[in-house]
Write a protein that binds this DNA or RNA. Structure first.
Length: 432
DNA sequence: TCATATT
């Protein structure tokens, strides 16, 4: 009885809006952030997003505003407008995933006959509420794609239309009922785009037999199916493949690149001569020597399985570190490729021209001959998952970083020469 | 060509 239309104080009411904020220095508190955002808009709450296990800030937060108007005030005042001390770029302030869609009451309408107009769709859907926005999707010649997006004023209206029309209402001249669903969120669309990009990438054959990029889009550990895996089937999503372990493939042993082993012994060390200092000598030989230097774990070295490259390939095409069995070193790096741990000043490298097919693990492996790799990260395009060909490697000592530079800068890996430099220092002088 | 992250 006492309920009625009292005030709603919950910060999660239908009205309230959640914003996602990036570029938040990891040492800021929720109270500090709340204070800051309240200079620009009404804010109910700030929640810092934390690592599940360490509870450390992940450098971003959610901000809850009581209304869309207040949220917009915060976005307009802060997005790309101010850089917090310690951040590398300006604050990113936007609606959290799914928030805009939730607020817009946006519906997708499918199975529209190609010849229906906006006016006809509008007439039908207006029965259930006020339409704020409506568009039929069209192709190049303005031909309808047979679907539309529309926005209602309220959620109740959208639900009413959805219930009444989806799967029930047939438009004039159509034998199938309309489909009405909530529109995909931005996140779902991104996921879809990524999927598409992936399958397209894997279906484009590249005939450059000299270069590993031929197989760059394939899963690591993938063996080109010269012996009957039906790889040619057009339209087949290669990401679905999970092949049995290489070692079990007939002919696997013949693929072990004796070529590389030869290259390693003949080429590497002498060729790096001029830039070598005594300290450098101390490290790589240990990895070359002994029986462990065979590629016992070929999966640790994606380049390895492409090395039925002709003998004519450059003697410098194999970095020293990847020749080692990584069993010893990888355990010492632990989650070396996982987190984003940074080493002390001078121990962090920026690497450019990383072969496209390299991931964190391969980068780590390629650089572990010079010291303990704290972390290795290759940057990838958010939408497509494709490598951007640059990344970071961190050691725990600046000396290791220096040897990595002298050994690996200019080193030919894949088609290009690596560029290896100290990472730019983004830290600002601390405010007192 | 220098760290974009959605409790």
């Amino acid at each position: 009885m006492a309920e009625g239309k009292r005030e709603r104080r919950e910060s999660s009411s239908e009205e309230s809006v959640k914003l996602f904020v990036g570029q938040v220095p990891k040492n800021m508190t929720e109270v500090q952030l709340l204070t800051m955002f309240r200079e620009f808009a009404l804010v109910d709450e700030v929640n810092i997003i934390k690592d599940k296990t360490t509870r450390a800030s992940r450098g971003c937060c959610f901000v809850i505003c009581p209304t869309r108007e207040e949220a917009d005030k915060a976005v307009n005042a802060c997005h790309n407008k101010k850089t917090l001390s310690g951040a590398s770029s300006p604050l990113q302030v936007k609606y959290a995933d799914g928030e805009l869609e939730r607020l817009e009451h946006k519906l997708f309408v499918g199975m529209l006959p190609k010849n229906v107009s906006e006016a006809e769709v509008s007439a039908l859907f207006s029965t259930y509420g006020t339409i704020k926005d409506l568009q039929i999707l069209r192709g190049s010649q303005q031909t309808s794609k047979g679907c539309a997006f529309l926005k209602y004023e309220t959620k109740e209206q959208a639900i009413a239309a959805l219930d009444a029309i989806n799967g029930k209402h047939k438009m004039e001249g159509s034998s199938v009922p309309l489909v009405v669903k909530w529109a995909d969120t931005e996140k779902e669309r991104q996921a879809r785009r990524a999927q598409k990009a992936q399958s397209q990438a894997s279906n484009v054959p590249n005939t450059d037999s000299q270069h590993p990029s031929l197989f760059g889009a394939l899963p690591l550990g993938y063996v080109p199916p010269y012996n009957g895996f039906g790889y040619q089937a057009p339209g087949y999503g290669l990401m679905q493949y999970r092949l049995p372990p290489m070692q079990n493939q007939p002919g696997f042993h013949s693929m072990i690149p004796t070529v590389n082993q030869g290259n390693a012994l003949r080429g590497i060390a002498p060729d790096l001569g001029p830039s070598m200092n005594p300290r450098n000598y101390a490290i790589p030989p240990a990895s070359y020597m002994g029986s462990t230097y065979h590629l016992q774990h070929p999966l640790a070295y994606p380049g390895g399985m492409f090395s039925h490259r002709p003998l004519s390939s450059s003697p410098r095409s194999v970095p020293p570190a990847v020749l080692s069995s990584n069993s010893a070193t990888s355990s010492s790096t632990g989650k070396g490729s996982g987190g984003q741990v940074e080493g002390p000043p001078g121990a962090n490298l920026f690497i450019y021209h990383i072969p496209q097919e390299y991931g964190d693990q391969e980068l780590s492996t390629a650089f572990q001959g010079f010291g303990r790799v704290l972390s290795a990260k290759v940057f990838v395009d958010k939408a497509t998952g494709v490598s951007k060909c640059f990344g970071f490697v961190s050691y725990d000592s600046p000396e290791d970083a220096q040897s990595a530079i002298s050994m690996m800068n200019g080193f030919q890996l894949g088609g290009k020469k690596l560029k290896v430099q100290l990472k730019r220092d983004n830290k600002q002088t601390k405010p007192c």
